[in-house]
Amino acid sequence: MSLRDAFESGRFVVTSEVGPPKGTDVAEMLETAELLRGRVDALNVTDNQAAVMRLCTLAACVHLVNAGHEPVYQVTCRDRNRLAIQSDILGAASFGIANVLALTGDHVVVGDHPEAKAVFDLESVQLLEVIETLTKGTDFAGKELHGTPELYVGAVVTPDAVPVKPQLAKFEKKIEAGARYFQTQAVYDPESFKSFMELARHFDVKVLAGIVVLRSARMASFMNRNIPGITVPDALIAELEASEDPTRTGIEIAARFINDVRDVCDGVHIMAVGAEHLVPEVLEAAGLAQEVSA
């Protein structure tokens, strides 16, 4: 079932992600994908995540399609201009890759090639418009396409950004530019997330709550300090600190959150960040394992 169908079926959608390798050996990536087969609706494939150079997303998506998975092709604006991005998206569509997630992308300065030229010929809102144009049968310059891609387009939003108002205003621009669904940055406070969803519900878009499984109090504090837009409440950090098995506690926290918000949003996007093996456990703890595979 495609991601679009999953959303349109009205059931609670689950997605996760895999990262392409630094190098040509895709075995590990495929193993991870295998671990999640049947448990998630789609797998995001990151695009030189955190500006660290890796195997190209398009190729990774092709490998996943070939293995029978449903990939979400993440496209950032950091490394390619509008020509390259359009041609890559057409290329992806030609392999049957239907899901595209439009992102601006981290700056090269934070990655492993900080001296690279940051392109940003487009950014996320403009990228969404460019994709929208492609799906209507022309390129961004208005030239007709031979073969029109059919794409299901997503974008991201950070509900806990500080300050939040410009972020929400941009969220609206992304919807106007053609985003059909959103994945959020990791969220932990159900109440705060619910108030975001109250706003989001004014628009005809699907929203996946972003989940990053906490594995220790230290990891939670680190994210609070270093990752913009993520706020782990103090109570959760205390809970992790008090726990004898923090990993287990983290899984419980994620499951609890999912249950808290499952009535207000359309699904969850679980970012494993190097611990994909925990994803099935979270789903099990949240009672979601059955639903997806059904």
């Binding site: 981290d106 940051a118 410009p166 913009p228």
Partner: peptide, 20 residues
């Protein structure tokens, strides 16, 4: 803007500061 983007802050905004 470090990225020179034209339609609003990217997700890297951190307490009103640039992610850089």
């Amino acid at each position: 803007c470090a990225k020179g983007i034209l339609n609003g802050p990217c997700g890297g905004v951190n307490n009103g500061q640039c992610e850089l």
